[in-house]
Design a protein around this nucleic acid. Structure first.
Length: 305
DNA sequence: GTCCAGGTCGCGC
DNA sequence: GCGCGACATGGA
């Protein structure tokens, strides 16, 4: 911690039952920069670039007191926070940890389903998101056709090469903005970040946002059906069936499974004695979960074998 | 060297 | 609408 930096603490309550550590760690995003997890203090860190360009470091911890579950956010910044900056931080913290999602319906269903054992803690079921949908989509593109170690490496380099840093802390870099990625160009991405053929997809997405062709805020419209969203998401180059369903999950819609090699392997092992499975068979397995299919799969206990 | 990883695209039928 | 090869990269 640099002495010349300002530190400011914010508390945000959760709308409903909430498990901070489960929200932070239940899926892989926590391993992707600029997220970090500190085991000793159970702290989720993220460097973030605010809309006006100021870089902040957010240190998020559990804040469960007086029967009010929530998160405590320590903000480190070069300059004192303005009111609108604090409001922006509150917004992104609520988005990252899904403090406004109500999963009561899912919990109820989980308690009723016979023959299912979900690895689900009370207040669990929230899956960590990035501060912005753009970042979530780039992360998702970096999970396609690659081993998880490759995803970590690509996101790491992308951030290291193109992310703005907190003044005085060159290692505290935010995730790059669409403008930075667009300006870098596809060749730079390919040469410097190891994104491979995904470079063009990520660059096109960033460029579309910068010049206004692509407006990601439309995906946050709650009146859109999951089917509409899937169709619209697949218009993004590089986003196929798996990625679209993953992004749907990140948007808080859980009715579609993101069928990939992991899900196939899981269903094959647990329900088909290791035999190959079709997509239709996978759909059938999780069909009883209705609009909670994705979460049912995600927390479905692996076969003990 | 060869194969493949938490897929997707663009083609040809 | 379906099957197929190509696609960048790094690790096994």
């Amino acid at each position: 911690m640099e002495p010349q930096h300002h530190s400011h603490t914010i508390k945000e309550p959760a709308a409903t039952l909430f498990d901070f550590e489960a929200a932070a760690r239940s899926h892989g995003w926590v391993a992707l920069r600029p997220f970090e997890w500190d085991e000793a203090t159970a702290t989720l860190g993220r460097i973030h670039r605010l809309e006006q360009g100021q870089i902040v470091r957010l240190n998020m911890r559990d804040d469960s007191r007086d029967s009010t579950a929530g998160v405590q956010v320590e903000v480190e910044s070069a300059e004192p926070l303005t009111g609108s900056q604090e409001a922006e931080i509150r917004r992104i913290v609520r988005r990252m940890l899904r403090l406004d999602e109500d999963l009561a319906d899912f919990y109820r269903l989980a308690a009723q389903q016979n023959g299912w054992t979900l690895n689900l803690k009370p207040g669990g079921g929230r899956l960590l998101r990035c501060p912005t949908l753009f970042e979530d989509i780039v992360y998702t593109l970096c999970t396609t056709n690659i081993a998880w170690s490759g995803t970590i490496r690509m996101v790491d380099r992308l951030t290291a090469k193109l992310g703005d840093a907190l003044p005085g802390r060159t290692d505290w870099q935010a995730f790059p903005t669409p403008a930075a990625i667009a300006a870098a160009g596809p060749e730079f991405l390919k040469q410097e970040t190891g994104l491979g053929y995904r470079s063009l997809y990520v660059w096109e997405l960033a460029t579309g946002i910068v010049d206004g062709r692509c407006d990601l805020t439309v995906f946050e419209d709650p009146s859109l059906t999951p089917a509409d969203l899937l169709k619209a998401l697949r218009q993004i180059k590089g986003v196929g069936g798996y990625a679209a369903a993953t992004i749907l999950m990140l948007l808080g819609r859980y009715e579609h499974l993101a069928i990939d090699s992991e899900l196939r392997a899981h269903v094959s092992r647990k329900y088909f004695e290791g035999q190959p499975v079709t997509d239709a068979q996978i759909q059938t397995i999780y069909e009883p979960w209705g609009r909670w299919r994705y979460l049912a799969y995600w927390f479905d206990a692996p076969s003990s074998a």
